[in-house]
């Protein structure tokens, strides 16, 4: 059993999904705190602010990134995040989470080094527990 995850981050525009995940995290006590952004741009803005004022405790241990979102989608976020992530001293685990079963999306997601895995919605409760348990920094 690893260390408990302090801060998890969800980037997803599906409110119902986000609420359900929030509930799972609460019930299973998977993370102390939760950051929620409804598109890539909001999340990116958050990380850019931290860059200017470095405080590691505000950086999430784990990110769950949706692909299909308005304003800035998951791909665009990945493209931007890759440019700034090396400025953080903390290792951030990133999962792409999508209901797309298009193999092209899968391939593309795996081509990013910073993507740990591609998870297809719905994620089993047990899988959530495993992820939070195993992937502690």
């Amino acid at each position: 059993m690893g260390q408990k995850i302090e801060l998890a981050c969800i980037i997803d525009d599906d409110k119902i999904y986000v609420n359900l995940v929030r509930k799972i995290i609460e019930i299973k006590h998977l993370s102390e705190n939760l950051l929620i952004f409804k598109n890539g741009l909001e999340a990116l803005d958050y990380f850019k602010v931290i860059l200017t004022n470095m405080t590691a405790d505000k950086l999430p241990d784990i990110i769950f990134l949706d692909l299909n979102m308005p304003v800035m989608d998951g791909w665009e976020f990945l493209g931007e995040f890759i440019k700034i992530k090396n400025n953080f001293d903390k290792k951030i685990i990133l999962y792409v989470v999508s209901s797309s079963i298009d193999p092209r999306d899968l391939e593309r997601a795996k081509s990013f080094n910073l993507v740990t895995d591609y998870l297809i919605k719905p994620i089993e409760l047990k899988k959530f527990e495993q992820i939070f348990d195993r992937d502690v920094a």
Binding site: D14, S98, S99, S100, P122, I123
Partner: peptide, 16 residues
């Protein structure tokens, strides 16, 4: 994608 996103939410609800 559109249909799956809802069915996956349903499945999450059932699990919860």
């Amino acid at each position: 994608h559109n249909l799956r996103s809802h069915s996956s939410n349903l499945s999450l609800v059932v699990q919860l």
